[in-house]
């Protein structure tokens, strides 16, 4: 998708855009089958895709609404556990359990956002921090239901039309690409609507937003719930991908990785989330020798970016013209 977006900038006419899209889709379909990529690489691409999705989710909250969550892994855990346990106890297919995971994460997000949205952003942030720990605590202590420290094992792979998705048949890769594409479209449409404008207005000046008629509390909650639901979907994908889930699967480190991706790639930039994910997910693989220090590097990214380029690599003011809808007369501007 990232390449797709980059191409869009170069190609302005519609037929060319469609052609570019077709080429991209063909390439994506072909890649895992081509033999050019080892299963290991396909796996990394799948992870990049997954983390792009999670970063888009946090970007909506942090980049567009100006609220920071450092417990996003908690929502992945809610989505993951919901999906895994529904499979375990009810034997439902992945699509159903994943949607339930999303809804559950959204509901939990609402419960967390409701008391904190009226307040300044720091309170929400600290609540997300505590939330991540609470989820872990419940997963660990409610043994009869969650499996406690042993977690859930041998989680079934998703199956579509009788085909079980694996890394080898490229199924997981395709699924992750489809999910990420849908989430991208979803986020793109939100940020280019009334809702997205309300989010950004809250980020830039919440009092002025209130005075222009935006119900700031309600929109903070909406942003949070949507963001949590997407994270839940990511979690539901991940646990069926690695086929294992325990209280430590989605720990604080995951939350930090997600926020580092958003900050590095660019707050308020959709392509930024893809770039950030590509960089931060591939670098521990490329720089094996640095893997011991990778977590320190994530922390350094946060600190250094804030100091030198707080808007991130692709964030900040766009130099491209605003895209008016077709049929809007702009008087030559």
């Amino acid at each position: 998708m990232k390449h797709n977006n980059a191409k869009k900038n170069l190609l302005d006419t519609k037929p060319k855009k469609i052609a570019a899209l077709v080429v991209m889709v063909a390439l994506v379909l072909y890649l895992p089958k081509s033999g050019l990529l080892s299963p290991y690489l396909v796996r990394i691409l799948t992870m990049i895709s997954l983390y792009s999705m999670l970063s888009l989710s946090l970007n909506l909250l942090t980049g567009f609404t100006g609220l920071v969550s450092i417990g996003h892994a908690g929502f992945c855990a809610v989505g993951g556990y919901t999906s895994a346990l529904m499979w375990q106890y009810l034997g439902l297919p992945w699509l159903v359990t994943a949607i339930c995971g999303m809804i559950m994460a959204g509901v939990v997000g609402l419960m967390l956002a409701a008391p904190t949205s009226r307040l300044s952003g720091s309170y929400l942030t600290i609540a997300t921090l505590g939330f991540g720990e609470i989820v872990k605590m419940i997963a660990l202590n409610w043994q009869s239901f969650t499996g406690g420290p042993l977690g859930v094992n041998h989680i079934e792979r998703p199956e579509f039309f009788g085909i079980t998705l694996t890394t080898f048949n490229g199924g997981f890769f395709y699924l992750s690409i489809i999910l990420t594409a849908l989430v991208t479209l979803f986020v793109y449409r939100i940020v280019n609507s009334k809702m997205g404008r309300a989010f950004m207005a809250i980020r830039d000046d919440s009092l002025a937003a209130t005075m222009m008629g935006v119900d700031v509390t309600a929109y903070k909650m909406k942003s949070f719930v949507i963001s949590a639901a997407i994270a839940g979907l990511g979690g539901a994908f991940y646990v069926h991908f690695v086929r294992f889930l325990d209280p430590n699967t989605f720990n604080f480190d995951i939350s930090i990785i997600i926020i580092s991706i958003v900050i590095l790639g660019g707050t308020g930039s959709i392509p930024g989330s893809f770039l950030g994910a590509a960089l931060l997910i591939s670098f521990p693989e490329i720089l094996r020798f640095a893997s011991e220090y990778r977590f320190i590097i994530y922390g350094l990214i946060l600190v250094l970016m804030m100091r030198f380029k707080p808007e991130g690599i692709l964030g900040g003011h766009s130099h491209r013209p605003f895209r008016l809808m077709k049929g809007v007369e702009s008087y030559g501007n």
Binding site: D205, A209, V214, L324
Partner: peptide
């Protein structure tokens, strides 16, 4: 709203 364009400010 400093990080929104002029037209987005008006749309808001």
């Amino acid at each position: 709203f400093c990080d929104m364009r002029v037209i987005q400010n008006v749309l808001l």
